[in-house]
Design a protein around this nucleic acid. Structure first.
Length: 411
RNA sequence: GCGUCGGUGGCAGAGUGGUCAAUUGCACUUGGCUGUAAACCAAGCGCCUUCGGGCUACGUAGGUUCGAAUCCUACCCGGCGCACCA
């Protein structure tokens, strides 16, 4: 069953005394700066956090089934810090908003998800997010609980709190106006809906990626308009993917927290040097002095330290050691890594069919190209495959391009 | 509703009857160099191929033509302008 309003009660969460809330100015200072893009308004945040009151801190997520990457962990880690200060974390799953799709992410699939799918997706999300945040101390809500029953009268009342000009100020809309790209009316509704979440939950603070700033501020505006608390908004920094572009599934530049230690280590090592400082600051708990020490090392050593720490956070010491050994063996020494993909095939089939059939190579044309470029290397004989009609007679270990390895065994 | 401009490969954006599987840039792949980084250099970048070529593709469906991404018609979608705002 989907948790209904009331499933989570004050008995389960809650009312800690003042003495449970940490008000150490130094820690508050760190929470409000590290990995933080913006705090609006900063004075309000300081005042609330110093008051000793337990704050209601809201974080909303889209209920897609995607794997979590390091970028997703940034706000999660920030939530954890708030939780450690003794504040109450409310996780809102966008079970209703899923039907609209956030215009911020214009690639987002607009497929309507059923409530059941949303719930399933959240399970997967939670399983991953638990590597960062302790969910036993988190209140989880689904926003269809209150958005389902919103009628047109309510929508009008919400919409009347904004002017069209305010909506158009959003840089994304501004840009699309300028570029002559369409803006659909319902896209204005999205900030209203997620803003209404914070009205209903009457929160003290909202966290999100800096791409959510507009939506969160809309919520702040609505909460004030409906006589709620004065909330502050904290946006976390967005980290670039390993190639320096926006971290995005479609660019293939994400480090997923479900990646194996070896994958994770390898991806982090191949990232651009200039990203090391931000990753250190945002994705690890290294203190500022420790970060300085690391950055003073040879760039490769610095990256090793960073990669090692991040892998350790998600896979522990053992995984890290193995990943590091694998990396050194494969790339520093040019050997073959452990546990490569092994394909059992009938004797005599062509290599082209094997590689294309198993998705190692995309098409036969691609295969021919790779052969021509001497990119398919027989590591047993230490020579490239030069015959594009090569057929499999003997077991064969291949290196395709820089990092694809496959062992083929005829039977 | 009327007018007008437009819809091309992952993206941007050329091309306006044959020499177009489609200039160019970005992204991507591969080789070189390296620290599996960046930068740089070089090659490649729809699918199939017996390497001759074949097939599919420029919003959708038809049509004109020996030949269409390019011309015509209808439809769908979008931008802008005008009208509407009882």
């Amino acid at each position: 069953m989907i948790p209904q309003r009331g499933c989570y009660t004050k008995h389960m969460f809650g009312f800690r005394g003042k003495h449970d809330v940490v008000t150490d100015p130094r820690r508050i200072g760190e929470v409000l700066t590290r990995g933080v893009e913006n705090v609006i308004p900063r004075e309000l945040a300081l005042k609330k956090l110093s008051s000793g009151e337990q704050l209601r801190v809201y974080f909303g997520i889209d209920p897609n089934s995607a794997k979590l990457h390091l970028g997703h962990t940034v706000p999660l880690r920030k939530l954890k810090q708030f939780s450690e200060l003794g504040h109450h974390i409310i996780f809102v799953v966008g079970s209703f908003t899923a039907m609209i799709g956030d215009p911020t992410d214009r690639d987002a699939e607009r497929t309507q998800l059923s409530r059941e799918e949303v719930r399933e997706n959240f399970k997967g999300y939670r399983r991953q997010a638990e590597k960062v945040l302790d969910f036993s101390r988190v209140e989880v809500r689904y926003n269809h609980e209150w958005l389902d029953t919103v009628d047109f009268e309510k929508i009008v009342s919400l919409a009347s709190k904004f002017t069209v000009q305010q909506m158009l100020q959003r840089d994304m809309f501004e840009r699309r106006m300028r570029d002559g790209k369409p803006i659909r009316l319902h896209e204005f509704l999205y900030p209203l809906m997620v803003g209404y979440d914070s009205v209903v939950l009457d929160v003290d603070a909202e966290l999100g990626g800096s791409d959510q700033e507009f939506n969160m501020l809309a919520g702040r505006h609505l909460q004030a308009a409906f006589g709620g608390r004065d909330k502050f908004v904290l946006t976390t920094r967005l980290i670039e993917g390993t190639d320096g572009r926006k971290m995005s599934k479609s660019f293939g530049n994400c480090v997923y927290i479900t990646d194996t230690p070896t994958q994770m280590f390898g991806k982090l090592m191949s990232m651009r040097d200039n990203l090391v400082p931000i990753y250190l600051d945002v994705c690890t708990d290294f203190s500022a002095p420790r970060q300085e020490e690391i950055l003073a090392l040879h760039p490769k050593e610095a990256k090793m330290a960073l990669a090692g720490e991040i892998v350790r956070m998600y896979h522990g010491e053992d995984g890290t050691r193995r990943a590091k050994e694998d990396f050194i063996k494969t790339f520093s020494e040019g050997n073959i890594p452990e546990g490569i993909q092994e394909l059992r095939v009938p004797r005599g089939v062509t290599l082209a069919n094997v590689l294309v059939g198993n998705g190692v190579v995309e098409s036969k044309s691609e295969f021919r190209r790779l052969v021509k470029q001497r990119a398919i290397h027989n590591t047993d004989a230490d020579s490239p495959i030069t015959d594009d009609s090569h057929s499999i007679q003997e077991p064969l270990t291949l290196k395709v391009g820089k990092r694809r390895f496959v062992r083929i065994v005829p039977e």
